[in-house]
Structures are given as C-alpha cells and as structure tokens.
Nucleic acid binder design. Structure first.
Length: 233
DNA sequence: GATATCGCCTACACCTGAGG
DNA sequence: CCTCAGGTGTAGGCGATATC
C-alpha cells in the first residue's frame, strides 16, 4: 500500500455536513501497556497546512516524533491531554477508562469542540459528543495524527518520570509495555502502584497473582463512569 | 421466536529482532 | 539509521450455535 499523508478531508466533510466549526482530533496511547495511565490527546488544528512529516506517531522514529511534537505544540490551535489511572482502568475496564480520559482531554481544551474525530471504528466517547470514527484516522486525518504524536511523546515522558522510582522496570525504555526487562522485574518485585493489576498477565506471576484485582461488571462500570456513584479519583 | 453465549475477525496500543 | 514481520495485550462487531 503506497504511503498517503494525512489530510483535512474528514474534517472538511464534518464541517460541511454538520456545520461544526471547531473539530477536535482525538487519539489514545498506552492502551495495551501493563503499567501507567491510558492517555488521550484532543487536538484542534483548523485547516492550515501541517508541519512536514506529520503522520501517525507509530510510523515515526522516537527522534522525529519528539522533534515534531515540539513544532506541533506551537502549530496546533489548541490541544489537551486527559489520563485515566491504572486504578481506574482496573475498576472500570479499558473502554470506560478511555472515555473518561477522552472527556478529560476534551473538557481541558480552552474551547469546546462541535465535533470529534475518533481514531478507530469504535465510538467509545458517545453522547453528547458529536463523533465521527475513522479507521486508521491517525494516518489519514491531520488533527488525529497531531493528537497521536502529542499524546505519545507526553505519555512517554510521564512514564520516564515514573520510572525514576522503579528503575528495575525500565519504564523509560518500555513505556509500561511488556518487555523482557519489565517481565523479569515483575516476577522479582511484583506490581508497582502503577500496574494494571486486573489484567491477565498477573495470572502468570505465581508470587504475586494473589494481588490481582477483579474488575467490576461493565454495567456497574458504566454507572460509575456516568458519575452517579461519584467515583472519586 | 427470542435471548444468551461463544469464537473469530478486526481494531486499537505497543515491543523485539532481523535485515536492508 | 530505518522498515517490516511477528509477538504481546484489551476490546467490540457479528454470525453461528445453544438454550429457554
């Protein structure tokens, strides 16, 4: 498949069909990690020409990604990050945690978007947000690509900071994802407070699996995410 | 006929190691 | 230095099957 750089096509169509004036691109990072938050970035870019080389953060080398993030910080109209903690992921499940992080990011923006472009095929955000899901949106939509780069660089930096107190896990190197160093440290020292202890990798840790937490049902999670139970994080 | 459950597929997030 | 293939993880959509 030939490489096609991201465009403003989806944003233009969204503006044309819904009348939206402010459109936010949203992308998440840290979804499959064993440790650390899941982070969501919402970026408002408008229709200006993007910095050269902008695309999905996964297609960029760390060096280019970091350089691009610096430029992007000035180029975007606005952006904000939202996070869900490992505790929230354990208690609510990934989908609800994602929604929580996305809402936090969107509400942290200085302006409220009229519409949102979500990466992927599943709308984990839902009402009242006006959502357009786009498969591989981080490769095809400029606003989502910008969000993906900013999210990735910021979360990597966060993980590096967390790693200072847990050197043996090498969070700076693996961002909380399973790597040989990470696995070895888990077996040796057990999960840190930053680990998602409801996940199944815990079953493979004989010394520590008694610490595994059971997730609440999706229904209860949805209630909590709705705010009725006042989950206080 | 209606509802519940399971497996498969695709989607997202990454890492590692081989090879150019 | 970069790219690509193949591995990890969670999750939703959907059709086939099972059960009430």
């Amino acid at each position: 498949m030939p490489y096609e750089p991201p465009t403003h096509t989806v944003e233009r169509s969204l503006r044309a069909t819904t009348g939206a004036k402010i459109v936010a691109g949203v992308d998440e990072v840290g979804r499959g990690a064993w440790a650390g938050p899941v982070s969501v970035c919402a970026a408002v870019t408008g229709l200006r020409r993007p910095p050269a080389g902008l695309t999905d953060s996964k297609l960029l080398t760390p060096k280019r990604r970091t350089g691009l993030a610096e430029v992007l910080g000035d180029w975007v109209t606005a952006y904000a990050l939202g996070h869900s903690s490992p505790e929230e992921i354990d208690a609510l499940g990934m989908t609800v945690a994602l929604r929580l992080a996305a809402v936090r990011a969107l509400e942290a923006l200085p302006v409220r978007p009229d519409a949102v472009i979500l990466d992927g095929k599943h709308d984990y955000l839902g009402a009242p947000w006006r959502v357009r899901t786009v498969i591989k949106g981080d490769q095809s939509c400029i606003a989502v690509a910008a969000a993906s780069v900013l999210a990735k660089v910021r979360r990597d930096a966060m993980m590096a900071e967390l790693g200072v107190d847990h050197v043996e896990f090498d969070f700076a190197g693996n961002a909380g994802y399973p790597s040989p160093t990470h696995r070895t440290a888990l077996e040796e020292y057990g999960p840190t407070p930053h680990h998602r202890v409801s996940w199944s990798y815990m079953d493979a840790l004989p010394r520590w699996r008694h610490l595994k937490k059971v997730r609440v049902t999706p229904e209860a999670a949805a209630l909590k995410a709705g705010g009725q139970l006042g989950f206080d994080f």
